[in-house]
Computed example of a mutant assay.
Amino acid sequence: MTPKQQGFFFPAEWHTHRATWLSFPQSSDSWDYGERLERIYPSYMAFVKAISESEKVCINAKDETHQALILTLIEKYGIDKNQVEVPIHPNNDSWCRDHGPAFLINPETKQRMIVEWGYNAWGGKYPPYDDDDQIPVRIAKYLNLPYVVPGIIMEGGSVEFNGKGTVLTSKSCLLNPNRNPHLSQAQIEEFLCNYYGVEQVLWVTEGIVGDDTDGHIDDTTRFVNEDTVLTVVENDENDENFLPLKQNLEDLKAMRLLNGKPLNIIELPMPDAVYDSGVRLPASYANFLITNGSIIVPIYGCEKDKIALEIIQDCFPKHKIVGIDATEIIWGLGSFHCLSQQEPIV
């Protein structure tokens, strides 16, 4: 029986968490230079501290030396060590949203399960990724949870859930031949429904410029409740993101939820373009993380930061909005949502 047939589903991100999982940054394709790696520590540890204020933080360490470094930084940055777990789980890179476990819950039986999707570093772009591919199994064993293996490539940043039977994703990513070339769109939808426990798959067209994942949904459109999405828009017609984000907005306006209702759509500005060495980076306010007590939002030192934070606060009036500078972290081509994967309670 599939997880869906057994009554399991992937809850919305605002469902209460036991913890948030991270894979601590290390020297790899994302953080290739020692200096660049150390420059992200202040923002990264501020991120860890913000999560720890309302839930546990579990940080995958690649080995004992890495584990010792993480524990030293936890002390240095004044983080409550009782709120942090640092298991040794060998990994290749820091993007836990994509290589980490997909946690399913069954409210009737009070059980949890992990989906161990295949992982190929966004179409084989950044080998090696063999350790990352094993992270869900390692965490399942760490937590003594059952796991299921669908046998296809899937990344957590490519899917967005409302917790009521709907998943949002993008054609540019999941239909890219570098993921599952043997599967049709209908077959991919069947896997999503069976293994995430959803009833409906809704598709936007594109991602943002500079996104090496081929267009993850968590950089463009996020559910903030079961029928409302925040979606980024670009008002500058000369910006490279103007047309793809305009198309996504049109896609969203045409969508209907399972109850037949249209989506409530709230527009979120894009930050000013962020470049490094002439390369456009995928900076977006949509890459926020929802925790039990806060919404952790990447900011970029521009005037639009304040506008974005106010819009997000209006969407989450019971949460504390925490803006953390992401100008160093985005150099790795991802931000706070990309770095994390929530572990729900049941």
Rank of each mutant, 00 (worst) to 15 (best):
A254P: 02
V346W: 04
G293N: 10
D214G: 03
H99E: 02
F223C: 01
N91S: 14
A19Y: 00
F24D: 13
R256M: 05
D227Q: 07
V137A: 09
C96I: 07
Y142I: 03
K318W: 04
K253T: 12
C96M: 14
F161L: 14
P298I: 09
F10A: 12
L289C: 10
M1S: 14
S340D: 08
I290R: 05
I70R: 03
K304P: 09
K246S: 15
Q341K: 14
N120M: 08
T327H: 13
V149E: 14
D98Q: 02
W117S: 03
I307Y: 07
Q134E: 12
G278S: 12
G165I: 03
V232T: 12
Q341I: 13
S340W: 01
V209S: 13
D130N: 13
Q247M: 12
G118V: 00
L192W: 00
T228R: 04
E85G: 04
E310L: 07
A121V: 02
V297S: 06
I79H: 00
F10Q: 13
P42S: 10
I265T: 12
D130G: 08
K76D: 13
S94L: 09
Q313G: 11
T16C: 09
L289G: 06
L69R: 12
W331H: 15
S294A: 15
C173R: 05
V224Y: 00
M45S: 10
E328V: 12
Y147V: 02
N235P: 00
Q5F: 05
E199M: 05
L289T: 08
V322I: 15
Y195G: 01
K261M: 11
W117D: 03
I217K: 01
V279M: 14
L73R: 11
R36L: 15
C338G: 08
K304D: 11
H17N: 11
V232F: 01
V209I: 14
T169V: 07
L230M: 06
K171P: 01
Y126Q: 12
A121C: 09
S294C: 09
I40F: 05
D211A: 08
D219P: 01
E35T: 15
E328Q: 15
D325Y: 05
E237R: 14
C96P: 03
L175V: 07
L69T: 13
E38D: 15
Q67P: 07
E160I: 03
N176W: 00
Q111W: 00
I153D: 00
R256K: 14
V86E: 07
T72P: 00
G157C: 04
D314M: 12
S294R: 09
H99M: 05
V297R: 01
K306T: 15
S277V: 10
S340L: 03
R36D: 15
V159N: 04
P262I: 11
A68G: 11
Q342I: 11
T169A: 07
V198N: 04
E267M: 14
L174H: 05
I51T: 09
E53H: 10
Q247H: 12
N241T: 04
P282R: 03
N292K: 09
E328F: 07
I139P: 00
E64L: 14
W203I: 06
E116A: 13
I79M: 07
T20K: 03
D218E: 08
V148F: 00
T205I: 01
D32Q: 14
L257Q: 05
F47G: 06
R222E: 08
N106H: 06
S27C: 13
M45D: 03
S277F: 10
W21D: 07
W21N: 04
